[in-house]
Amino acid sequence: MAEMLAGRLHLTDRALRMETVPVPEPGHGQVRIRVEAAGVCLSDVHLIDGTLTPLYLPDDAVTLGHEVAGVVDAPGEGVDGWQPGQRVLLQAGEKDRRGTVFTRGVDYDGGWAEYAVASQETLVPIPDDLPFEQACIIPDAVSTPWAAVTDTGRTRPGEAVAVWGVGGLGAHAVQLLRLVGAAPVIALDPLPAARDRALTLGADLALDPGDVALRDTVLAVTGGRGLDVAFDFAGVTPVREQALTLLGRRGRLVLAGIANKPVTIASDSPFTYLQQAVLGHYGSEAEHVVQLVSLAAQGRLDLAASVSDVLPLAEAPEAVRRVQSKQGDPIRLILRP
């Protein structure tokens, strides 16, 4: 039986182990993919440290990795339209008939491996000139903020927006907000390097959330009206409290970061009078990934700067350590089998 290397999380002791396991065989309607690149997300770190726990995993171990791109290796029985050699990325998960979402690398084996198996419906073709390292992060790292910007936040051209937390998701949110015509785009992050990065990615202004003159600055650059949409990608209670004070009439606060804390509105009177809203956001839909692949293929979206480093698959534990410690303040680290 052929074997391969895989990064397996064992839930009993929350240990990530690099193990030799059998190469998976595709079942009916499934396709085996030769993995070329897989992203390392903060969610992977949270699965390892116990902050997150799989809801539907039938076993006590899983191969991590929900951001995956590669080449079709072997179509299974009943597969139509997919041939060996095709370049693809994999959707980060799939729904069953009841609408339950099962996440790759969480509820079933993911792409921190030499090969991965995927339902044919979750494959998305990618163009030859889109590098695997960039393609793999489109599901989640790019599609989550894209869905937050376009669907949940319903951001319109000319609206004043702000992004708290210019990390793996927030950095892409800055790019995507500029793409849809939001203006001004304000980035907020306590790290100077993150603020500099936001300006490079297209933010009109990058501010320290601890600046005592922050409110005055935001009101000045928005013509006194405040923010139309505020995006919390930090998942920190003080961010929500600060963002609510900067919203204008009909302003929306989109919660994309998870704090596991209560959301408090200081006073319902101005909140109601100004017809403001707090909106929860999680993940993305399949169409968002397809849209982003199209934008990248047409040169509207450049993800080259998102690839902070590429490491061999065998160094997955080191990649996790670097993401957890924020060493080098990476947008995304990529594993290459």
Rank of each mutant, 00 (worst) to 15 (best):
R249I: 08
G235E: 03
A297T: 02
V221T: 10
G257F: 06
G165Q: 04
H28P: 13
L191V: 14
A173C: 11
V310C: 14
A243N: 00
V21P: 01
A256H: 05
L123P: 11
A92Y: 09
E25A: 15
V289T: 10
P190F: 00
T20C: 10
L90G: 12
V124P: 06
S306Q: 07
L199Q: 06
V236G: 05
A296S: 06
L274M: 04
L274N: 07
R249S: 08
L227Y: 01
E3Y: 03
G168V: 00
R250V: 12
V40A: 09
L16I: 01
L57V: 06
T237D: 11
A92P: 01
D96Y: 02
R195S: 10
G65E: 13
F132H: 13
G70E: 09
A38W: 10
A194W: 07
D196P: 00
G153T: 08
V23Y: 11
A296T: 01
G70S: 09
L279E: 03
A194F: 00
N260Y: 04
V221I: 03
V229L: 02
P131H: 02
L188T: 01
L179H: 14
V310N: 11
A171R: 13
L52D: 15
D268G: 09
R240E: 12
A173R: 06
A171C: 07
I48Q: 15
L292V: 05
D80S: 13
L90H: 06
Y108H: 14
D302E: 09
P24Q: 13
R154Q: 12
E241C: 00
A296P: 03
G280I: 07
T53Q: 14
V45W: 11
Y56M: 01
P184T: 02
V185S: 12
D216S: 14
W82K: 06
D109I: 04
G111Q: 04
A162W: 00
A171S: 15
G251N: 09
P312S: 14
V323H: 07
R215E: 13
Q298A: 03
D73Q: 09
G224W: 09
S284T: 10
P337R: 15
V185P: 01
A69K: 06
L130M: 09
P75W: 07
D204R: 03
D60R: 15
Y56A: 05
D96Q: 05
R14P: 01
G181A: 14
L169W: 11
A141T: 08
I265R: 04
D44K: 03
A296G: 02
E287K: 13
A206C: 04
A296I: 00
A220N: 10
